[in-house]
Amino acid sequence: MSEQRLIADNGSNGALIEVQGLTKRFIGVTAVDCVDMKVYSGELVSLIGPNGSGKTTLFNCITGFLRSEEGRVVFRGRDITHERPDKIVLQGISRTFQNVRVFPSLSVLDNLLVSLQQHQEEDLWRRTFHAPKIQRLEREAVERALQLLEMIGLTDLREEPAHKLVFGQRKLLEFACALIPDPDLVLLDEPAAGVGTAMVEQMKQHILELNRAGMTFLVVEHNMGVVMDISDRIVVLDHGQKIAEGSPEAIREDPRVLEAYFGK
């Protein structure tokens, strides 16, 4: 185990997360085909590609929701390839979902609190009987949740059940839920999809500000304007394979990318 970790440390060259030769097959389709990629601490990397190119599948493999057949995922030098999703989150990888998932009957505030509580150290007994330590942790959690609500502008709605929010607000809430544990890496699945221009702009600003403050992002996004504006680096997938990687300027000019998107 320790030997393996050592190898991983050498192999990852200080990358925060490294995906090595990851392959995921469904019946008859190879959704992700031997993909290698790295994200360094503090970077903002975008993952783009035509529909069905395997972006979300790659996300699901990294976060443990799907079991990859081959390859490894190394996070902070530790192999997390086949770990359970809940364990991976607790190590510092948060994510959002393409179809936006919040807990509909929990209040906005509770949605945030439930996203943080598993990260706070505690035991089951204390958690049941509201021992003083839990009350302290709960106060801290509420404080942090209120800060985030202030940031995304949902403070007034904090007591409302999440199902009463409109789509854009749910999206912001899910985003805040991903941020509340102060993760090392945030995976965003189409943060700008399905919302109006004002909201896209707001989302962009949040991501950029947080990135400037040192948070690392891996973003799947279709809105090329957003991708070109925010990314340090872009990885392009097509039919499950990585076909290009580079700065926004380089990707814009890359013939393989143009071909994947527009055909010959």
């Binding site: 979902f97 998932r101 439930v114 509580q117 990260h119 089951l124 049941t128």
Partner: peptide, 28 residues
């Protein structure tokens, strides 16, 4: 009362409403 009105109760509801999402916030 103790279980359902505490953090455990919140996790219970999370599991009931969306197991996938619950895993994504660290709840098993």
């Amino acid at each position: 009362k103790a279980m359902t009105s505490s953090r455990i109760g919140r996790a219970f509801i999370a599991v009931r409403e969306d197991e996938v999402r619950a895993s994504a916030v660290g709840i098993r």
